[in-house]
């Protein structure tokens, strides 16, 4: 099966970075590029913005010319991607909870969640891991080292 070239990773990445390059260049061009006292805040960004556009186009171009013989036909690992995505969402969600629940509880919950749903461990081991990690972190960073961490409603 031949994949559509537009779903090729390099082409997508190239399109994204080209868009980023355009954004950078357009934004930076509005600032002083060359002022009376020397190069302005736009000087450098305009330079690397344009370079980014050029390189992105080269990347896409390379793919179109070389697509036929370098294509590796390994199917995309959707299951793996899903696991990583769940992990990332859980991590971000636990961060969002920190201002309310505090670091230690959020972190324990994250450990519990990952143990259950990503590593598919039995409830007992996941729960133990969650509680022990949270308590361990509390002992090391709060009690022993006095590192300040996001505190929740409960004060820790």
């Amino acid at each position: 099966m031949t994949k559509s070239i537009f779903r090729d990773g390099d082409v997508i990445a190239g399109a994204l970075t080209a868009a980023l390059g355009t954004y950078i260049t357009v934004t930076a061009a509005r600032w002083d590029v060359m002022g009376p006292e020397g190069p302005g805040p736009g000087f450098f960004p305009v330079g690397y913005g344009i370079a980014l556009i050029i390189l992105s186009l080269i990347l896409i171009f390379q793919r179109f010319t070389a697509a036929r013989h370098t294509e590796e036909d390994r199917p995309f690992d959707w299951a793996g991607f899903r696991r990583a995505a769940i992990t990332w969402v859980a991590f971000t969600a636990s961060t969002a909870l920190m201002p309310t629940l505090g670091f230690y509880i959020s972190f324990g919950l994250l450990t519990l969640f990952l143990g259950l749903f990503v590593f598919e461990k039995p409830v007992k081991s996941a729960l133990t891991a969650g509680v022990l990690s949270a308590v361990g972190f509390y002992l090391v960073f709060d009690m022993a080292l006095d590192v300040s961490l996001p505190a929740g409603m409960l004060g820790f």
């Binding site: 961060t95 670091f103 990952l114 996941a126 990690s133 972190f137």
Partner: peptide, 19 residues
């Protein structure tokens, strides 16, 4: 084991970033 180590790395990273 990874199911403990991976969250642990997250926790330590969070502390690093927050500090």
């Amino acid at each position: 084991p990874v199911y403990i180590l991976h969250p642990l790395i997250f926790g330590v990273s969070v502390i690093g970033a927050y500090s």
